[in-house]
Design a protein around this nucleic acid. Sequence first.
DNA 1: CCCATGACTTGAA
DNA 2: TTTCAAGCCATGG
Length: 130
Amino acid sequence: MVGRREENQVPENPNMSKDKTSFFQDVLDVARLIPVGRVTSYGAIATYLGAARSARMVGWAMNSSFTSVPPVPAHRVVNRNGDLSGRLQFETPTKMQELLEAEGVVIKNDWVVDFAKVFWNPTNELNIVD
DNA sequence: CCCATGACTTGAA
DNA sequence: TTTCAAGCCATGG
């Protein structure tokens, strides 16, 4: 092989037929489905998309969420511990917490207190239509 | 092209 | 319980 995937660049897909780039899009899509006052984890989204070991890409996709339209509620995505690991990526380190609290989610020390309660699992909530 | 890093997760010790 | 190592794949130097 000459290179890894130099040609995997997809400038713009007029026809969303390519599933290759859908991962990023799907991540953003699922994130938009998170109900208000609920949160989910990177791994949950990754697992839902069939890439349980690619949780990191989910986080990377969220980074792209800031410039994506419609806007993605990235503040509703935390790590498996319920920690606001991505708070530093927001406008201000406290923005993420403020957004969550505004939705009724109790945050304490950069941690979702009722994580087990407000946790929203796409694989469980979103039924896969057969 | 090679190397390092990252909004993570899992499994083994 | 905590800690360490490996896997994931895109992006940047």
